[in-house]
Design a protein around this nucleic acid. Structure first.
Lengths: 131, 131
DNA sequence: CTTATATATCGAAATGGTTTGATATGACTC
DNA sequence: GAGTCATATCAAACCATTTCGATATATAAG
């Protein structure tokens, strides 16, 4: 007896008022439902984490530095003129998001960009800001 | 009398200890200096704002919904099952970052993706999470 | 084993973001 | 113009992030 979308569904009610056509509203509601059903929550969170990692000016600067090649924490903090603990913290966030990789060498930690599309991502953002 | 990099520069000191070679250290310091000089702070902040706008799961879901076409606030809040004020707030952030555009039509506000590279950005992120 | 150096982690303060009910605005309807 | 509906804005509670000094860990050198 239960259809995909109930006749009394507030969603349909609302859309019916929008379109003035109850039948169209039902289809629209079904379409919206399908769209949201196709969005995987955990995928959403994973993708958001990448953007969150890139959403800090300091971290973006680090990524830009690393385009030129591998650098150790010591060089990065010097280049950015930031305290060591801040720099280290930001690096750990970038690493957790998979944007950079670490290579330990003696007492040094050398960081480089991951093989992924990090650079393309930055290029796109630059393109978008210059429009 | 002032060179690009002072002999007593703590930056050079540090790098000299790293490489063991004061001359190489000086060059490395100069290279790092050039790299950071080429990073424009305001550009950095502008790009970070784009990533920040995309760093929330709810906002990412909105962007994914809008890939299918123009939607009004009412439809979006219905699809995502979120309160109206939250939905509106997220839309304003996306708009401020230039990721979506608004078209007023009577009492409705219809939103659509901007012409920019928003979709490519999402595709890249999806690619990066699936590695 | 002590010292020095590079980095990571902790902790607390400051800051910023998200959420949502309540309220304001603005448009269409009667 | 009173009522209704779509949306925006406000405000307060709540939660997350950033920052940085202090401390811990780990490696290398003496």
């Amino acid at each position: 007896m239960n259809e995909d979308v109930e006749p009394q569904d507030p969603c349909v009610e609302r859309l019916a008022r929008l379109t003035g056509d109850r039948c169209k509203a039902k289809n629209a509601a079904r379409r919206l439902q399908t769209l949201t059903d196709n969005i995987d929550e955990s995928e959403l969170v994973a993708e958001a984490e990448i953007f969150k990692a890139m959403s800090d000016p300091c971290r973006l600067a680090i990524l830009k530095l690393l385009r030129e090649g591998e650098l150790c924490v010591c060089e990065i903090m010097t280049a950015l003129d930031r305290p060591q603990s801040s720099t280290s913290h930001h690096l750990s966030i970038l690493k957790r998001a998979g944007l950079i990789r670490e290579r330990k060498e003696g007492k040094w930690s050398r960081y480089r960009l991951s093989e992924g599309a990090v650079i393309e991502m930055m290029n796109l953002a630059k393109l978008m800001t210059s429009l």
